[in-house]
Structure formats: structure tokens, C-alpha cells
Simulated scan of single mutants.
Amino acid sequence: MKELWRLIQQNVGVDADGIPGPKTAQALMKKLDIQPPAHTWPSQAEVRSGNSMFGRAGDERSLTNIRLPYVMRIAWEPERTVSTMRCHKMVAEPLTRIFQAALDHYGMEKIREMGLDLYGGCFNDRAIIGGKATSMHAWGIAVDMDPDRNGLNVHSPHAVFSRPDYAAFWEIVEAEGAVSLGRARDYDWMHFQFATL
């Protein structure tokens, strides 16, 4: 099997080590003019293995800055604002679409009122809070918003993002294939990620 992968890798122009990986898959798809299926994200386990489309945690070469469709306030220092977000290149377009669709749906006044402009972070090369596993933030594929009112151990109905007026936002997020931990597991309502559970 390794020899087969070596031949494929030589044919698509990536380092031939005989081990299937994201570079080989992307190069092969490009050569065969195959578009990746929309909204198909790997599982957390696949991401943590380092063999997913996202590569290795903390790899600066995989990151990019996106211009946000609206200015966000830093959650712990709301007088400071950000207009860009550092994330993995592969989620740059879906993230931009999410925030643009939220702006189109709610308008800036409502976004500010709801705290959908309180930025809690995206790329952060770290372990999960209270554990040893690598966080999805270490790949730049997770976003935290309004952490003060949607904390790790705050459940519905106390988490603000669990309220009915946020349903449209979560539908926008889920339309891009991203996962809300709040909607899926009723904890960490601040967090959504481009990896399945």
C-alpha cells in the first residue's frame, strides 16, 4: 500500500513518503479537477491526528487573516476593536460568509445588542481548557464569542446564545457545516468549530 501512495505522490508532485496525507489529497483532487464536497469537515479526532486537511496544530503557514464584515469588540476589553481574524486558510471563506450573513440578517445595531460582535478568539495554539487534548483553536478552526455570558459550564437557558433569537445565527453557522458545542452538547455556547464531534 505504501508503494501505491508513493506512486500517487510522485504523480501529483508532493514529497513521496508513502503516507497518505492532506497535501497528497489536495494535489490529487486538483490534478483530477475534483472539487471537495461542500461543508465536509473532519472530526476532532482526525484533526488531532495531524492527518486531516488542516495539517498540524500551530502551523503558521496554514493561517491567514480575514477582514471581518463588521468591527468586533474584544470581549475582555470592549473599548478595543478588531477588524480582522486570524484563522486557518481553509475556513477563511466560510467564516467570512458566516459573519456577512449575520450582518445581513440582524443589522449592526442588533448584532451589537446581542453580543455577536464580542470577539473571544480564534487561532490560539493551546490545549483545551481543563484538559490535555489540543484545542481546535490551535488550528484556527474554532471561534469564541461573548465568553462572559456563554461560559464553558453555562447551560441553556442561562447561556445567552441558547435563546431563541440566536437560532438564525446558529442556522447560518450550521449552513457552513460548522458545529456549535452549545447546540450539540449544551455547554461552551460561546464556541463553534469546523470539525465534527
Rank of each mutant, 00 (worst) to 15 (best):
I98R: 01
R67C: 11
F192G: 04
R126I: 09
P147W: 05
C87T: 08
G55N: 00
L68M: 15
A27V: 00
V14S: 01
A27P: 00
E60K: 15
F169E: 03
H88W: 08
K23H: 10
D104F: 07
R149Y: 13
S83D: 15
D165R: 13
R86C: 06
S135P: 09
D146H: 11
A102Q: 02
A159S: 10
T134V: 15
A168T: 14
H191Q: 05
D104L: 12
M90A: 14
Q9M: 00
E46L: 06
S135I: 05
G130K: 03
I141M: 03
H105I: 04
H155C: 14
E174D: 10
E171N: 14
M72I: 08
R183D: 02
K31D: 10
K110N: 10
N124S: 13
R126P: 04
I8L: 03
Y119D: 04
N65C: 05
R61Y: 03
G151R: 11
S52V: 00
D148G: 12
V143N: 04
K23D: 06
T81C: 08
I74F: 10
E93N: 07
D104Q: 11
E174V: 07
W76M: 14
R6A: 05
L32F: 01
R97P: 04
I129Y: 12
R67F: 11
G115P: 01
E79K: 15
P69M: 04
G50C: 02
K132V: 13
M145I: 05
E46T: 07
L103E: 09
A92Q: 05
T196D: 12
A159V: 05
I19M: 01
I34W: 12
Q44N: 14
K30A: 12
V14W: 00
G107Y: 04
L118W: 03
K2R: 14
E174T: 11
I111N: 01
L63P: 10
M53Q: 12
H158C: 14
S180E: 05
G121L: 07
L197H: 14
M72C: 09
G131N: 10
Y187E: 15
V91A: 03
A178R: 01
K31Q: 15
A168R: 15
R6T: 06
M29V: 07
G50D: 01
C87R: 04
Y70L: 07
P37M: 08
D117L: 03
D104I: 10
A175Y: 07
S156F: 10
V14T: 02
H137K: 04
P20H: 00
R112T: 12
T134L: 15
M90C: 08
G182F: 08
C87P: 00
C87M: 05
L32I: 00
E77V: 13
M190V: 08
I34R: 11
P20L: 00
A127C: 10
G182L: 07
R86I: 11
S180M: 02
L116S: 03
L28V: 02
D188N: 04
G58M: 05
R185V: 13
Q44S: 14
G18T: 07
M114V: 07
